Amino acid sequence: MNPPDPPSTLHFFVDEAGDPTLFDAKGRILVGQEGCSKTFILGKLDVEDPASLHGALEQLRADLLADPYFKRVPSMQPERAKTARAFHAKDDVAEVRREVFRVLMGFDLRFYGVVRHKTALLDYVRQRNEREAGYRYRGDELYDTLVEELFRRYHPLADQLEICFATRGNKSRTHAFRSAIEKAEARFEGQYGIRRSAEVAIVASTPPEMAGLQAVDYCLWALQRHYERNDSRYIELIWGKVVEIEDMDRIEGGRKGVVYNKKRPLIVDQRASQ
Rank of each mutant, 00 (worst) to 15 (best):
E149V: 04
E149N: 00
E149Y: 00
L150P: 01
F151N: 02
R152W: 03
R152C: 11
Y154R: 03
H155P: 02
P156H: 02
L157R: 15
L157S: 12
L157D: 14
D159E: 14
D159Y: 06
Q160N: 09
L161F: 04
C164E: 05
T167N: 13
T167P: 00
T167K: 15
R168Y: 07
N170M: 01
N170T: 04
N170S: 07
N170E: 05
S172V: 02
S172E: 04
S172T: 01
T174K: 15
H175F: 11
H175I: 10
A176L: 15
A180M: 11
I181C: 00
I181N: 03
I181M: 04
E182D: 14
A184M: 06
A186Y: 11
A186Q: 15
A186G: 09
E189P: 03
G190D: 08
G193S: 11
R195K: 13
R195E: 11
R195M: 08
S197E: 01
S197C: 09
S197P: 00
S197G: 02
S197H: 12
A198L: 14
A198I: 00
E199S: 07
E199M: 02
V200L: 15
A201Q: 11
I202H: 13
V203D: 14
V203A: 12
A204N: 14
S205V: 01
S205R: 01
T206A: 08
P207V: 02
P207C: 06
P207K: 03
P208F: 03
E209H: 06
E209N: 07
M210T: 08
M210N: 12
A211T: 04
A211L: 10
L213V: 07
L213F: 03
Q214P: 04
Q214F: 02
Q214M: 03
Q214G: 01
A215N: 03
A215Q: 01
V216Y: 12
V216A: 11
V216S: 09
V216N: 12
D217Q: 04
D217L: 05
C219Y: 15
L220C: 08
L220H: 05
A222M: 01
A222N: 08
L223K: 02
Q224S: 13
R225I: 01
R225P: 00
H226Q: 03
H226N: 09
Y227F: 15
E228P: 10
E228H: 09
R229E: 14
R229M: 13
R229K: 15
N230Y: 03
N230F: 02
D231I: 05
E236R: 15
E236L: 13
L237V: 06
L237H: 14
I238Q: 09
I238T: 10
I238K: 11
W239E: 12
G240V: 03
V242T: 13
V243H: 14
E244R: 07
I245W: 03
I245Q: 02
E246C: 10
D247I: 08
D247E: 11
M248L: 15
M248V: 15
M248G: 07
